[in-house]
Design a protein around this nucleic acid. Structure first.
Lengths: 338, 338
DNA sequence: CTGTTAGCGCCTTCAC
DNA sequence: GTGAAGGCGCTAACAG
């Protein structure tokens, strides 16, 4: 049996409530008593039962982090982890606990996200990797606790959105390529069930089509993973015509593309230009160093938590935060001869 | 006010305890009542307060995951995330909640890990990235809840260890290099406060020294990150003698090394052989594809959770699980002319 | 300053 | 089958 507050009370012949107040360092307790209490507490190895405290305080001090879409995109290749990292630190810094929910059983239980939040009494929720196809999305709109959804626009009274301007990013890439004289530009899409992935393709389509440059045979679909970029590029290079530039909607797919291009005996950027998306640090170390669009996941994660807490603590309204990514020109793109 | 069990009881004119039993699908409640209760529960949007339930059940249903050492090694470069991923899924599949603790405030609060576990009433703990320098380690030995520590050997009644045989891995690399005729082998160490990092270096030292091949000027220290591999290699290549092979104790450092080697105008593997460590998928896509030692983080994570639950649920004793990594020969190593 | 009382929301005896 | 009572460990409100 773990020692409780009562045990301390008994030993000191005082009331449990007094012990509680002493332990919580309340003003109305004498210094000497506090010391005595703390001494005994240490002696018998007392540790507060935070579950009990949370029950009476009606405050769970917990944020629920939903880390989804990992059955489709995993580990090294999941940008979600980039958020998780800072989110973790920020939330802990606020002295909140953070409980992570994942697809696996939580979803297979057919538990609605919104119910999970209720049961666990979380005070706020953050969603990473919510997919378009997720049937749970509709229900989410009515969530009662402050919520931030990353990279997917879901409207709701308590829901804030933090995301990146994908159209801006794609246009930055295209501006760059156009400037270098490219017209035959291929695109490696990400999966359709991911909003940012669709956004990127749509931006590409819109711009290219408006310039009468869009060609369907220059579009292949991957899944953000290395291998898929590799195979998509193989298809591309085995087509009738070969593009002068390839835009991959993730850095990892771009790295896959590099391999396919190299195997085909082509040189980057001399024979073909290549652009990635995400701005992973590793891109700078490749040869050639990868031109890409940098997304500041760190800042976005921090802002997500800040937003969440201003909703929780200051009752502020939900907001939409859209960050502009930034083109990083490196060595994988080059002016075309024509 | 969220609806409670009492509310349902009132509406149905029955006792709260009956509602509780109905909701928990106990045997001694009539089917018809159960249905009625569930209907009303749904109507008024009742959600169990798991905090209250946990208090009376004296079961937190929670595993604490301590994800440390992230201030030193972050995001893309932290292999810890590879564990987190599977651990997350496995624990959720067991229907446990998982609360993540991180360095930041948890540690700066000067809270001992062991106290955090007590307060949160976690039923088990997993440590990822525990550093050698962590003053908390000593205290950990006496932890009362079943605990698994990854990649660091800490002995204690309730502590299991899951790790990788680093000496085996390094020897596999050296065997491979010796077979290719290399003798002037350089080593890029990881940081000293990480046990596996030290293990790898020690294994290197031991073997090389026993063969009278060890040279101090062929050893540089990095921090597992890309950049550090890059700079370490620069130093190496600017030395008086140049090694014929470089072993980096992480894939990421090896990738940094590649860049430095290339910049120096040297070719891999013709001028210099390079070996990584970890077996990141990306290594296969580099040019040349990176020879490395593969560690099955996935399996190790799974085993860690399995071990934890056999301690928790079946009261089994703590164990030490050591996995053998596997050399993957790719294109960055080559026979030497001499 | 400290003790008494009551209750957070739920679940488990023990009656009936 | 169902109801009543009590308590998990802690804290807030009110006395004194």
């Amino acid at each position: 049996m773990k020692p409780s507050i009562k045990e301390i009370a008994k030993r000191l012949n005082i009331a449990p409530s007094t012990v509680s107040r002493a332990l919580n360092d309340k003003h109305d307790i004498s210094q000497s008593l506090k010391e005595k209490v703390n001494t005994v507490a240490k002696e018998i190895g007392y540790k507060k039962n935070s579950i009990a405290a949370r029950l009476v305080n009606k405050k769970s001090n917990t944020i629920g982090v939903f880390f989804l879409s990992r059955e489709h995109i995993n580990n090294e290749e999941n940008t979600g982890f980039k958020y998780v990292e800072v989110i973790l630190d920020k939330i802990k810094a606020k002295n909140y606990d953070l409980i992570i929910f994942s697809v696996d059983s939580d979803l297979k239980d057919k538990k609605k996200y919104i119910d999970i939040c209720s049961e666990r009494q979380v005070e706020g929720a953050i969603f990473i990797g919510l997919e378009d196809t997720d049937e749970n999305t509709e229900l989410l709109r009515n969530i009662e606790v402050p919520t931030v959804i990353l990279e997917k626009r879901v409207s709701g009274k308590n829901i804030s959105y933090v995301g990146s301007d994908n159209e801006y990013g794609i246009n930055a890439i295209l501006d760059h390529l156009f400037q270098l004289g490219h017209k035959d530009i291929a695109f490696i899409k990400g999966p359709d069930f991911i909003e940012c992935s669709k956004d990127r393709f749509n931006a590409f389509y819109k711009r290219m089509n408006s310039l009468n440059l869009y060609r369907e045979d220059f579009v292949k679909t991957g899944n953000f993973r290395l291998k898929s970029g590799y195979s998509a590029t193989q298809e591309l290079l085995n087509g009738k015509d070969i593009p002068t530039a390839i835009v991959a909607s993730s850095d990892l797919m771009a790295i896959g593309a590099m391999k396919a291009i190299e195997e085909k005996g082509l040189k980057i950027p001399d024979d073909i230009s290549l652009v990635g998306y995400d701005g992973f640090e590793i891109g700078a170390f490749l040869s050639p160093a990868l031109t890409t669009v940098y997304q500041d996941f760190q800042t976005m994660g921090i802002k997500a938590v800040d937003t969440l807490f201003s909703m929780i603590e200051n009752n502020e309204e939900s907001v939409n935060l859209v960050f502009k990514p930034k083109l990083i020109e490196r060595k994988s793109t080059k002016k075309i001869f024509s």
